[in-house]
Amino acid sequence: MAAWKVVRDSFADHDVPSTLMGVTVLGYKDQLVEIEAVAAVLDS
Rank of each mutant, 00 (worst) to 15 (best):
36 E>A: 11
33 V>Q: 03
12 A>W: 01
4 W>K: 06
17 P>T: 03
39 A>I: 04
23 V>I: 12
34 E>M: 09
37 A>M: 03
35 I>E: 09
31 Q>T: 03
37 A>K: 03
4 W>M: 06
29 K>D: 15
22 G>F: 08
11 F>I: 13
3 A>G: 06
32 L>E: 15
29 K>I: 15
43 D>M: 03
17 P>V: 03
28 Y>W: 10
39 A>S: 09
41 V>Q: 13
38 V>C: 05
19 T>L: 14
39 A>K: 02
8 R>L: 07
9 D>R: 03
44 S>K: 02
2 A>H: 00
6 V>L: 12
34 E>H: 07
12 A>H: 04
3 A>H: 02
8 R>M: 10
14 H>I: 13
17 P>H: 00
31 Q>V: 10
12 A>E: 09
17 P>E: 11
24 T>D: 13
5 K>E: 11
15 D>N: 08
15 D>V: 09
35 I>F: 02
30 D>K: 14
26 L>A: 13
2 A>I: 00
38 V>G: 04
20 L>I: 15
16 V>L: 14
2 A>L: 04
20 L>H: 03
17 P>S: 05
44 S>V: 08
28 Y>F: 14
30 D>R: 13
14 H>T: 13
21 M>I: 13
35 I>R: 02
2 A>N: 05
15 D>R: 09
25 V>H: 12
12 A>V: 07
27 G>E: 15
23 V>R: 00
